[in-house]
Design a protein around this nucleic acid. Structure first.
Length: 562
RNA sequence: GCGCUCGUAGCUCAGCUGGAUAGAGCAACGGCCUUCUAAGCCGUAGGUCGUAGGUUCGAGUCCUACCGGGCGCGCCA
């Protein structure tokens, strides 16, 4: 509806220009807003005020010209008005709103989807947790935001690939292997032989036991049988990675998050891609030797200090394989890449982009794009739960899902803007009361389904593809408001996709549920009036459809009973 | 100190690429179930949008400076 009005205004502007009532031949892009106050109509446009200065006419004069060339859009508009300093307000006719329902029906399960992205190849990398421990709450937020973003972008017409990168080659993996080895040998963390910065979590004990029992591990891309030999550090290393990968896979599966591609850091080394990147950077003249290390002059590309690529001990710093990895993404044809990660890693952005620029590979400056989520604070019993991976005392994603449920966990993680800090109150999320917005929304869906059951018992059939006459009785403010909200789903999904902000969809759902609950309390659906009953059942059918579509984009179920 | 980010009602937060009288939930108070799910609805109360300047027809939104919280600033990842 919004788009239709926008194009109506655009053609009006051109018509006015042809009639020489407007002198400008190019116009600012037409933005259709939704007024906060319903007295100001269903939509409004500020184009007249934007053009006033250049056009050298008063905003109200321009608005008047636009309106005269506007017509009523084939009956779409009941009326238009000029208001305030020069707003053009649009009042959509009830019949136009009613016909939106038919459009929603015709789109079925794909209602909410658009072709905005034009099928562009786009990759989202998210979670990418190191295989050194179970997924914790911070990963949970990343998983929820990343996964939802993928669903949103796919719905908005992008060709989305979901990718998980894991660092199975760095110093922290050696550290992991040493920790497991120590446990195999019965060395405790307070023992002087315990490795510096060893991983102390309970899971390391489980891992060691599993290794010594020569167990077999099948993970998404890791298949390993433990040798059981505590002296074979390489065997421990690969087994430990596989074992933790399996744990993470189970966590993600429990969260209904899946990936298309897993890329291993070790694979970049074995394919020679890391060395190739270093050679290229050196050949391009952006490196220098100092203090026995090889440096990249990232300051040439906006970084605040140069970065070490190859340490004095000969090993590479993590950021070199990172650059190699992103070059690989580029070469796979992803003109757009979005990396979803914790804000504590934000310093890598400049570094990675600088490395990519220094390759002279024709990669755009702002590539890849980033979505950073802020820290999660976990509250339990009114106290903050401290997260410490080394000490092993932390709330895992799995704990949370088991305790709170998948739907509520997903909803809570995405209902805040990614770049705002999030307080996850476990006690609150567990409460199955109206304090919990996810139940509020799901309840609306269940309530509608319950009405359908009652209607079926009384022999009412919900019409398919009803005629305009059959819908003409949907005229109350609540009914039209409900339709207006339903029809906003596709725009909302596009907004989420463009701004990388899934939380907008949770607000949409809450508003829609609220609108339905109001309607429900004010009006009886099943009544003596046959025509009205049928029309309202149809309206609710479309409401349930919209709730379900939006929830499914968030990966949340739409229960039929609660 | 430098960089990123946040600061809106008692609390948790929205505010749609700058728009009209700043919104929601929770908490508080008062109402609504002999009829489709009260996990609901309606109403009341609650604000100097951190502070001070600036940009313009118009600023919670953009710019600058300061104040306050978080994160980062390693030859760790």
């Amino acid at each position: 509806m919004r788009n239709r009005i926008a194009s109506l205004v655009e053609s009006s502007l051109h018509a006015a220009n042809t009639a020489q009532e407007l002198t400008l031949s190019t116009f600012p892009s037409v933005i259709i807003g939704t007024p906060a106050n319903s007295d100001h109509g269903d939509f409004s446009c500020n184009i007249a005020m934007q053009m006033a200065k250049e056009e050298r006419k008063s905003p109200r004069q321009i608005a008047d010209i636009v309106i005269r060339h506007l017509g009523n859009g084939n009956g779409m508009l009941a009326r238009t008005e000029i208001a305030g300093p020069g707003f053009i307000n649009f009042f959509v006719s009830p019949s136009a709103w009613q016909s939106c329902l038919l459009e929603i029906e015709s789109q079925g399960d794909s209602f909410g989807c658009t072709t905005t992205g034009g099928g562009e190849k786009l990759q989202v990398e998210f979670v990418s947790a190191n295989p050194t421990g179970p997924l914790h709450i911070g990963h949970g937020r990343g998983a929820a935001i990343g996964d939802t973003l993928c669903r949103i972008l796919a719905a908005a017409g992008w060709d989305v690939t979901r990718e998980f990168y894991y660092n199975d080659a760095g110093a922290q993996i050696t550290n992991l292997a040493l920790s497991v080895q120590s446990r195999c040998l019965g060395i405790e963390p307070d023992d002087p032989r315990w490795p510096d910065d060893g991983y102390q979590g309970e899971y390391i004990k489980d891992l060691a036991r599993s290794y010594q029992a020569c167990e077999v591990v099948e993970a998404s891309d890791q298949h390993t049988t433990a040798l059981g030999d505590p002296d074979n550090l390489d065997a421990i290393r690969s087994f430990a990675v596989a074992w933790l990968r399996r744990e993470q896979d189970l966590d993600l599966a429990a969260f209904d998050v899946r990936f298309d591609v897993y890329t291993l850091e070790s694979g970049l080394y074995s394919a020679g891609r890391v060395d190739a990147v270093v050679r290229q950077l050196t050949a391009n003249g952006h490196t220098y030797e100092q203090d026995g290390a090889l440096w990249l002059r990232t300051t040439d590309f906006g970084d605040d200090k140069d970065r070490v690529m190859r340490k004095a001990d000969g090993g590479y710093t993590y950021f070199v394989p990172d650059v190699a990895y992103h070059l690989d993404k580029w070469e796979r044809g992803f003109t757009r890449v979005i990396n979803e990660q914790g804000a504590d890693h934000h310093s890598t952005i400049t570094r990675v982009r600088a490395g990519l620029q220094a390759l002279h590979a024709g990669i755009p400056k702002g590539w890849p794009e980033y979505v950073l989520h802020q820290m999660v604070t976990v509250m339990r019993g009114g106290e903050e739960v401290k997260i410490s991976k080394r000490a092993g005392s932390y709330v895992t994603l799995r704990d949370l899902i088991d305790e709170v449920g998948r739907d509520a966990t997903r909803f809570f993680f995405i209902m805040r803007k990614p770049d705002a800090q999030l307080v996850f109150d476990i006690d609150l999320a567990k409460r199955q009361t109206n304090e919990n917005p996810v139940y509020y929304v799901q309840y609306a869906h269940a309530r509608i389904c319950s009405i359908f059951e009652n209607a079926a018992d009384k022999g009412f059939l919900i019409p398919d593809n009803p005629s305009p006459d059959e819908l003409a009785c949907l005229t109350t403010t609540e009914e039209l408001q409900l339709i207006k909200l339903l029809s906003a789903l596709p725009d909302t999904v596009v907004d989420c996709a463009i701004h990388f902000e899934p939380h907008r969809l949770t607000y949409f759902l809450t508003e829609l549920a609220s609108c339905f609950h109001s309607f429900y309390n004010k009006n009886r659906v099943i009544s003596e009036e046959l025509a009205l009953t049928k029309a309202r059942l149809y309206l609710l059918k479309r409401t349930a459809q919209t709730l379900k579509s939006a929830l499914s984009i968030l990966g949340i179920t739409a229960p039929e009973r609660m």
